[in-house]
Amino acid sequence: MDSWVWWLLVAVGLGIPLVITVLPEFGLFALGAVGAAIAAGVGADVVWQFVTFLVVSVSMLVVVRPIAYRKLDRGPQIRMGIEALRGARATVQERVDQHGGRIKLNGEVWSARTLHPDRVYEPGQQVDVVEIQGATALVD
């Protein structure tokens, strides 16, 4: 059997733990094995095949791996809980002033206070939720 076939078998063998463990490093080593198979296919001797495998694998680890992990870390930021309520629009249900009131926020009635003591919002007005303090929304 030609050596390029062996390298392709090594690439497939490295692909199996990639699928099982979901560690991208195995895929990078599999690409190194594919590079060695290409080198073997063009007639490189065994030493150059191993050098190609090492150079491609290490360069993939050095260059591609950090980029991939940075992309994974920057996944979509999903705001949940109280964080999701900041900046939301609400409708005043009962007069809201510095002492209190009620708003309808995401289909629920919340107690609310104004962020600025001199402001007053009447029922039906739209307000923005600036902050949540306990079970009270500060609105502006």
Rank of each mutant, 00 (worst) to 15 (best):
Arg79Cys: 06
Gln77Leu: 14
Glu25Arg: 12
Leu14Gln: 09
Val34Leu: 13
Phe50Tyr: 13
Gly41Phe: 04
Gly35Asn: 10
Gly15Pro: 01
Arg74Thr: 07
Val92Asp: 00
Val96Ile: 13
Gly101Glu: 02
Thr21Tyr: 03
Ala40Thr: 12
Thr91Trp: 01
Arg79Gln: 09
Ala137Glu: 03
Glu83Thr: 15
Ile67Val: 15
Ala135Asn: 14
Ala112Asp: 00
Ala135Arg: 07
Val127Ser: 00
Val63Cys: 07
Ser57His: 10
Asn106Gln: 12
Val55Asp: 05
Ala44Thr: 11
Phe29His: 02
Leu18His: 05
Leu8Gln: 07
Leu72Val: 10
Ile67Met: 14
Pro17Phe: 11
Trp48Ile: 08
Ser59Ala: 15
Ala36Tyr: 05
Pro76Val: 11
Arg95Tyr: 06
Trp7Ala: 00
Val127Trp: 00
Ile103Glu: 02
Phe50Ser: 12
Ala135Met: 06
Leu14Phe: 15
Arg74Asn: 11
Ala84Gln: 05
Leu28Ser: 05
Asp45Asn: 14
Trp110Val: 00
Val120His: 03
Asp118His: 14
Leu105Ala: 01
Leu9Ser: 08
Ala11Leu: 10
Lys104Ser: 08
Val12Asp: 05
Glu122Lys: 08
Ile67Leu: 15
Ala37Thr: 13
Thr52Ala: 06
Ala33Pro: 00
Tyr69Gln: 08
Pro117Val: 09
Pro123Ile: 05
Phe53His: 05
Tyr69Ala: 09
Gln49Thr: 08
Val130Gly: 04
Leu85Trp: 00
Ile132Ser: 01
Ala135Ser: 15
Ala30Asn: 04
Ile16Met: 08
Tyr121Thr: 00
Val19Asp: 05
Ile67Asp: 05
Leu72Asn: 05
Val42Leu: 12
Ala137His: 04
Arg79Asn: 07
Thr52Cys: 04
Gly27Arg: 03
Trp110Lys: 00
Arg86Asn: 09
Val62His: 14
Glu83His: 11
Gly41Ile: 07
Leu61Gln: 12
Thr136Tyr: 10
Ala33Ser: 10
Gly81Trp: 01
Val127Lys: 02
Tyr121Ala: 01
Phe53Trp: 06
Glu94Leu: 14
Leu54Lys: 09
Ser111Glu: 08
Gly100Ala: 11
Val130Met: 09
Leu105Asp: 00
Leu115Phe: 15
Thr91Leu: 06
Met1Arg: 10
Ala44Pro: 07
Gln77Ser: 14
Gly15Asn: 03
Val56Arg: 02
Val130Glu: 04
Ala36Pro: 04
Arg113Asn: 05
Gly100Asp: 07
Gln133Ala: 12
Val92Ala: 01
Ser57Asp: 09
Gln133Pro: 02
Met60Cys: 15
Leu31Ser: 10
Phe53Thr: 08
Arg89Ala: 15
Gln49Gly: 04
Glu108Trp: 01
Asp118Gly: 06
Leu54His: 06
